[in-house]
Design a protein around this nucleic acid. Structure first.
Length: 485
DNA sequence: TTTTGAGTTGTTCGA
DNA sequence: GTCGAACAACTCAAA
């Protein structure tokens, strides 16, 4: 007598090192693999435009991978609490397995679903397949959760026994089609995840390979080519110095466990210096830290962690709207800011150093509420992650846990000259400045008239004048922050 | 309970 | 050009 298991894929779109899937297989029961696109329950926090594009391709890849091991992926759309119990009943499943999620609305939704299923005598088993450790696992000696990164990181390194990756999957005993009764899968196209009218995703294709195989390649490339110089090169948007794993990691095409062990192996083989690897792994730990904050303080998704900032005099959006639009479109007149915002729009991703520069600019130079920045990133980033996105915006705004001191206001000229010294990054994305000499690339308004003319630049026509003066804006921001005292 | 040391990523100014 | 101090206090984590 068999009793099928229903496996729900969500933010764990992979077959390797997937503890929940592994456990489902170990029941030795036939498995039905299901993905439910549930935009209703997640509301404003459902996938933005860029992430939907990724999801489309990631699901396509996952479907092929699942078919290769002898099963299939059923696609549905609707509220999970309606769709899942119905399918459970139709196929006569006795167990449902999934990987845990940690966004406040996700926790709530999963709790509701679990209660519905339990009330019908269906067993639900959930697993950690997204994080190195559960967000409740590391506590301070006084019993609270960590609010400062460094002690958290030290504790993690000293006491964290990182589990081994679980065995890969060679075969899934898929529930035969005839046993799925009336449960028909939607076609991938019917989920309608790709943009049309206009299709703004053209720039994504050459940059990214969504899916488990793409994630594996990306990791290998990083370990082969960039990891050994990570410490310094990670700050250089003009170089391929970062891993670019964030969208893969967000969608669970690779786990932090796999990344951790892969890095450690290379260190053990003397292929990557320990200090370089340590800085990279600390970035993985930052992701964990963000989840610790989110789990313990779920209202951080739209409320300042530091309550003093609730009184901050943000710009009135009735008059600041043009500034926000200029920032979104990469038309602020500050080349490094504009390059970053255009990279985001074109490729669905922005270099981490530049994320800090554009974030600081929005919040401090323009005094625009960090939530507007967060929302824009949510819609445009392929790696938009509720924990990392909100924690990072609060960090740069100064209102977060362990945040940057308020007087730390990035100077877009200095940052550009320091981290894009030859101007390659700016030239790549702000093409109208490409023919300016490097000397004036980050400060075109300082270029002599003949230099501008020779470079084909007409300030205010082909490229905007700065929308705010740096010095004025800096002093204004320092003043505004006085209000939080 | 109190004390102590420390806290991702910066900028500006003046010597 | 280079260097160190100031920028503010405050909260956290551990002893």
């Amino acid at each position: 007598m068999t009793s099928p298991v229903l496996f729900l894929f969500r933010e764990d779109l992979r077959l390797k090192d997937n503890p929940a899937l592994r456990a489902a297989i170990e029941t030795a029961q036939p498995i039905m693999c299901l993905f439910v696109l549930d935009e209703e329950t997640e509301g404003a926090w459902s996938a933005g435009g860029a992430r939907k594009w990724w999801l489309h391709h990631s699901l396509k890849s996952l479907m092929a991978d699942i078919e290769e091991v002898g099963a299939s992926l059923t696609l549905k759309r609707g509220k999970a609490e309606d769709v899942v119990p119905k399918i459970v009943q139709e196929i006569g499943a006795k167990q449902v397995f999934w990987t845990r999620r940690y966004g406040p609305s996700q926790i709530e939704a999963d709790k509701t679903l679990k209660e519905i299923l339990k009330s019908r005598d269906i067993e639900v088993k959930s697993f950690n397949g997204r994080l190195l450790f559960e967000p409740w696992q590391f506590t301070t000696k006084t019993g609270g959760y960590y609010k400062v990164f460094t002690p958290f990181w030290k504790n993690l390194k000293a006491n964290g026994d990182i589990r081994a990756a679980v065995a890969g999957i060679r075969k899934i005993n898929g529930l035969p089609k005839e046993s799925q009764h009336s449960v028909a899968s939607l076609a991938l196209e019917e989920l309608d995840l790709r943009p049309s009218n206009p299709d703004w995703s053209k720039g994504f294709d050459p940059e990214w390979s969504p899916g488990e195989a793409g994630a594996k390649d990306r990791l290998k490339r990083f370990l082969d080519e960039a990891a050994e110089a990570y410490k310094d090169d990670r700050n250089r948007p003009d170089k391929p110095g970062t891993s670019g794993l964030s969208p893969h990691l967000h969608h669970g095409e690779i786990s932090p466990i796999q990344i951790w062990h892969a890095v450690k192996e290379r260190v053990a083989a003397n292929e990557i210096p320990d200090d370089q690897a340590d800085v990279f792994l600390s970035e993985i730990a930052w992701r964990e830290f963000s989840y610790v904050l989110l789990y313990n303080k779920p209202d951080m998704i739209d409320e300042e962690i530091n309550p003093k900032f609730k009184a901050f005099p943000w710009a009135d959006m009735r008059s600041a709207k043009p500034d926000l639009t200029a920032w979104q479109k990469g038309q602020t007149g500050y080349p490094i800011v504009d390059a970053g915002m255009r990279q985001l729009w074109q490729t669905g991703w922005m270099h981490n150093r530049v994320r800090m520069i554009v974030g600081s600019f929005l919040v401090k130079h323009l005094l625009i509420d960090w939530r507007y920045g967060m929302e824009w990133f949510w819609d445009t980033l392929l790696d938009a992650d509720i924990a990392s996105n909100t924690a990072s915006w609060q960090w740069i705004a100064g209102c977060g846990a362990d945040a940057a001191p308020y007087f730390r206001i990035f100077n877009p000229m200095t940052q550009g000259e320091k981290f894009d010294p030859n101007g390659d990054y700016v030239r790549n994305y702000v093409t109208e400045l490409a023919n300016l000499p490097t000397k004036y690339l980050h400060t075109p308004w300082e270029a002599p008239k003949d230099v501008l003319k020779a470079g084909g630049v007409k300030l205010g026509v082909t490229y905007p004048n700065p929308i705010v003066d740096h010095k004025t804006a800096r002093l204004r921001a320092l003043d505004a922050y006085q209000e939080t005292k």
